[in-house]
């Protein structure tokens, strides 16, 4: 096995995903399968190959630092699950 249930629990924590016991077992098995498959890439010698993170020869794009038009607060808050006084409202952060 390339991955254990403990790894899956750790990764789920990082990804902020709560998983059921059944899901943990299923993902352990499936991620193991996928990781075994992608091991195929190790057949290739890539020591001298440069990585591609982006296909276009783009450089950083700069623009003038001026104030533009933003979305209206009211309109944005229409989608908020909870709001108060023009802000998003969330449950308490510290117990």
């Amino acid at each position: 096995m390339k991955i254990s249930k403990k790894d899956v629990e750790y990764v789920a924590k990082l990804a902020k995903l709560k998983l059921s016991e059944k899901e943990k077992e299923k993902f352990t098995k499936q991620l193991d399968q996928i990781l075994k498959y992608v091991d195929k890439l190790n057949e290739l010698d890539t020591e001298k190959v440069k990585p591609t993170s982006h296909v276009l020869p783009l450089k950083n794009v700069f623009r003038e630092d001026k104030v533009g038009k933003s979305l209206e607060v009211e309109k944005v808050l229409e989608n908020a699950p909870e709001k108060a006084r023009g802000f998003f409202k969330v449950p308490k952060i510290i117990d």
């Binding site: 990781l35 992608v38 890439l41 190790n42 290739l44 890539t46 190959v49 440069k50 990585p51 591609t52 993170s53």
Partner: peptide, 11 residues
């Protein structure tokens, strides 16, 4: 894993 994938992407 990720770096390897980016390198093969180049190939």
């Amino acid at each position: 894993y990720y770096l390897k994938a980016q390198k093969v992407r180049t190939l």
